[in-house]
Amino acid sequence: MHIARNWRVKHQRYSLTGEICHHCGAKVFPPRDVCPECTQPAYEPVRLSGLGEVYSFTTVYEAPTGFEAQAPYHLALIKLVEGPMLTAQLTDVDPNEVRIGMPVEMVTRKLSQEGDEGLIQYGYKFRPRIQAKAA
């Protein structure tokens, strides 16, 4: 089910590929071919760093179909260092640690599964930033 629908967004889901606007320099994610900042065309793909911080968050207890196995899970709005914001789950995180402003980084994880025999979708989630500690 929905194979083409998921295949089309593989670069966004697996490598956080957005676009760069050559008119104003804005980086755009999700890609939309039109810069949301200056409304000029923006077609050139650019891979985002995957670094950002939590803008807001919640916990989903009543999961929609396909996400039941993961519930409860943390959902967050992530502000990327390049500017765009996106919606993603938090993973590998202590529930008591989650806070607005927490630095996070992208990882690839299983997103959802359509039953026992259906498509398994993979994509980005975010975990507390480890790179920063090593630096």
Partner: peptide, 29 residues
């Protein structure tokens, strides 16, 4: 799941967002 059809299927719902969750993040902020 029907109500979530009003949200962005590729970039909100595919990540596990529900309508309540989206509003919860606004309230939290």
């Amino acid at each position: 799941a029907g109500l979530a059809l009003a949200a962005d299927q590729e970039y909100e719902v595919a990540e596990g967002a529900t309508f309540v969750a989206l509003n919860a993040m606004l309230m939290q902020r």
